[in-house]
């Protein structure tokens, strides 16, 4: 060590370094703090409603933990049952992170109402959720979140997130294990991708069908079809379908059976 910083003009050494000479040994961690609890979620917004849905199966590898673990949560209502809540959060991925995220957001929305005397708007809640996720970007909440509500103009609002807080308002979004199965179906059936007006031309001249907001009943049917199909092809999806229908009158919850195999 001595003589390490001996300059050309002096021969004087010090007993310490100016900086570490080598990177410290990499620490061996056999503990991995994440797991995937499977399942899928989906949200579709309409002209004056939003529908959120998720299956209720929870898995660890090939085992089913439970057939009834909800992925949809009411945010910011009154008391433990969240009475009167008008915002719904769905989380899929690592369930423990999902629960922690839900509880953090719920607490903040409740405190907002207590401190300001009025409920938080969906857009404000959506931005807050983004910040919560981003604040933990170096040790992320391992979840794909979707937030649904009714905006200040009475229109259906839907926001989707990546695990570190990037977010976007969309018409529809599928997340989780079967998202790759459901999302293309939604592109086709909600946004009318690859729909063309018959006889409007040849090849590139074909006119695409313009997407218009769908009626509520149609969307409910789409959601059910999406999940019954996903159950057939994905082993982590099944058991039950939890649906929340958000309108100006509040949130209606439905629970439908899915195949348990």
């Amino acid at each position: 060590m001595a003589g390490m910083f001996a300059g050309p003009q002096e021969m004087m050494g010090y007993s310490f370094n100016t900086a570490p000479t080598s990177a410290s040994e990499p620490r061996q961690h056999s503990f991995y703090p994440y797991t995937d609890n499977g399942g899928s979620t989906l949200g579709i917004s309409g002209a004056d409603f939003t529908i959120m849905a998720g299956d209720t199966r929870s898995t660890s590898g090939y085992s089913i933990n439970s057939r009834h673990v909800p992925k949809l949560f009411l945010i910011g209502g009154e008391g433990p049952k969240n009475k009167g809540a008008r915002i719904v959060l769905s989380v899929v991925g690592f369930a423990a992170d999902g629960d922690a995220l839900k509880e953090k957001l719920d607490k903040e929305v409740k405190m907002y109402k207590y401190q300001h005397g009025k409920p938080m708007t969906v857009s404000a809640c959506a931005q807050r959720l983004s910040h919560i996720l981003y604040n933990k970007r170096f040790f992320p909440y391992y979840v794909h979140a979707i937030l649904g509500g009714i905006d200040e103009e009475g229109k259906g609002a839907l926001y989707s997130y990546d695990p570190v807080g990037s977010y976007e308002r969309e018409q529809c979004r599928a997340a989780g294990a079967a998202s790759s199965l459901i999302m293309p179906f939604l592109d086709n059936q909600v946004n009318f991708k690859n729909h063309h007006i018959p006889g409007s031309g040849e090849g590139h001249d074909l006119k695409p069908v313009v997407a218009t907001p769908l009626p509520k009943e149609t969307v409910i049917e789409l959601v059910r079809d999406a999940f019954t199909s996903a159950v057939e092809r994905h082993i982590e999806v099944g058991d039950g379908l939890q649906m929340m229908i958000l309108t100006k009158d509040g949130v209606e919850e439905q629970l439908l059976p899915l195949k348990k195999d």
Partner: peptide
């Protein structure tokens, strides 16, 4: 149930 990751779930049998 709760495990070392903090994952929780409930079921008629566990």
């Amino acid at each position: 149930s709760v495990d070392l990751l903090g994952t929780t779930f409930s079921s008629p049998s566990l």
